[in-house]
Nucleic acid binder design. Structure first.
Lengths: 144, 144
DNA sequence: ATTTAATCTATTGATTTAGTAGGCTTTTAG
DNA sequence: CTAAAAGCCTACTAAATCAATAGATTAAAT
């Protein structure tokens, strides 16, 4: 399951995507509208800034804004950044590879294939899920 | 990521699948061969028995054995049992449904669709991954 | 009756998650 | 130049989950 932190991150990003090119948005505004604890959100946005997804401006009139286009940010990136590996085993992770200690030999493990397949399918869907698409869907759903 | 407990469970089940119809296998044997702490494995096997995947026999010559055929036990069942939900959000979980507190309205959430799709693809693969298939694959890999 | 092996309850230590506190730095407005 | 606004950064903490352990109990076989 996604961590709360990751859900918060996604909601904040969608919020910023909706206000793309409208200048900096303050943490406090996002926190209130999305019901996220201010200080926690602060840490999350900082992480997204360090990953070059957001940029910030200090002082009065400051805040956060997307530095990438909403079509260029997807759930795969965000989830990897906040929650780490997408794969269900370290030994099939592309970005966080590690041996499974309990496996004698990786070459003989019959589980890996299945979980590598799960990983591929998951990545395919998450990579398609851009902020732009999520936003579009939300607007469609809101209209009904 | 899968918990260690779940990995242990899968390895133990594959071990028992390989010895299907050969009578009870003792915890101690599985623990040694699969490098799983005896007491921890004990708890895991008990859980699998309560889920009617395994059965046990007490006393001398006792142990655990599969009560279902290796073709009838798959990773979806095992992972759900040991680690809980497969879905990445409670609100898209089929077996462990729960509201996402931080979402104002489930109907307007643009993230759910993507994660429901991830869930479907994941379930499809995991349900296909039976003990029989895993075992077959391991034997193939071992020959090379 | 003794031994073997699973059963069950309770407890523990380590790690992760979710959040809080508080001072520091930069920017803008007056 | 100084006060206020807003993000930056480090450290800490409470609660939950994970990984395992301890020890006494029950059931079956010989």
């Amino acid at each position: 399951m996604l961590s709360k932190k990751c859900k918060y991150a996604i909601h904040a990003l969608v919020y910023l995507a909706e206000r793309y090119d409208q200048g900096p948005i303050q943490i406090e505004e996002i926190a209130k509208k999305q019901h996220i604890p201010h200080k926690f959100l602060e840490a999350i946005l900082l992480e997204l800034r360090h990953a070059d997804i957001l940029e910030s401006k200090k002082g009065k009139g400051g805040g956060y804004f997307l530095v990438k286009k909403p079509t260029e940010v997807n759930l795969m990136q965000v989830m990897r950044l906040i929650d780490g590996p997408i794969a269900l085993l370290p030994c099939v992770s592309l970005n966080f590879y590690g041996r499974c200690e309990e496996c004698k030999s990786e070459k003989i493990c019959g589980i890996r294939d299945s979980l590598a397949l799960v990983r591929d399918e998951t990545l395919r869907v998450l990579e398609q899920s851009t902020l732009a698409k999520i936003l579009k869907r939300e607007k469609q759903l809101a209209q009904k």
